[in-house]
Design a protein around this nucleic acid. Structure first.
Lengths: 139, 139
DNA sequence: TACTTGCTTCGAGTGCACTCCAACGTTTTA
DNA sequence: TAAAACGTTGGAGTGCACTCGAAGCAAGTA
């Protein structure tokens, strides 16, 4: 618990802390279906429930979803995110493993950025070929 | 043909020009299955055949595959790449449409790079929360 | 009270990008 | 020449990440 608070929360609990699933859907851009699916596969920590069993998301849940959204942008497979979520749940002794995982992800992201910059260069060359009213022998 | 030469070829025709499918697979990292599939869906221009009907890839085909590989890295859907390939086949009067498409792709790539850089920043913050070597427990 | 909206679950369906199979023909190597 | 390796096709299968449907319970509004 303390680990989650100290490391996993980015946004401090401020504002209301009992969001319904449709509110969270609106805030995150995910569908309610996807949010339930995330919980089912273990990608969400267990979400609090109302007295009638309906989900009530906390600010921390929102923070986690925002982080997951970032990881998703990197192309990380959902299974790997689930693995990370499991490590968080397992507690303090997985700190090193988690840092390792994040650092590996960081390296992947750097690689992806480099690849995209290469691609950008290729696109620029192509575009410039299209741009110039070509008369010479292009390569 | 001339359009393809003037705009679509990056590598000048040098070296042998009759690669078998397994050679191309080795060179590109794609499987033979994928190469045939690319042709079937119209992502490859029609590949030359031997007198018995086997594929013989040219240097230009390799250049096209390299470009497709770059596009693939951007996350562009295969259907969009097929669309671009169709424009190329349709000839000179689609130049503008093609440049448009490449420029849109370029914008997408820039957006993706920005997203990844944001993600990188988040990862760095998380990693720094996990602390540097002093807190870690080595095996 | 009746209606509308939103929530629950489980399980099935979708779209994408491959990936593989079966059956058979061709080319290379020993 | 015989075997091994490689090629062909159409169509079916796989894995991922959702995405949706159906049946039913609960809460708010006219």
């Amino acid at each position: 618990m303390s680990v989650i608070e100290s490391v996993e929360s980015t946004t401090p609990p401020a504002g209301k802390d009992r969001y319904t699933i449709s509110e969270v859907a609106a805030l995150t851009g995910l569908t309610a279906h996807t949010l339930r699916w995330y919980e089912r596969i273990g990608l969400m920590p267990h979400v609090d429930r109302s007295h009638t069993g309906q989900r009530r998301f906390s600010e921390r849940d929102l923070g986690w979803l925002a982080f997951v959204g970032k990881l998703r942008l990197t192309g990380m497979p959902v299974a790997d995110m689930v693995r990370y979520a499991e490590l968080v749940r397992e507690g303090d002794h997985t700190r090193d493993a988690r840092r390792e995982l994040l650092e590996a992800t960081r390296r992947d992201v750097l690689t992806r950025i480099t690849e995209l910059q290469d691609t950008l260069a290729v696109l620029d060359i192509k575009i410039s070929h299209y741009g110039t009213a070509c008369g010479g022998t292009p390569s």
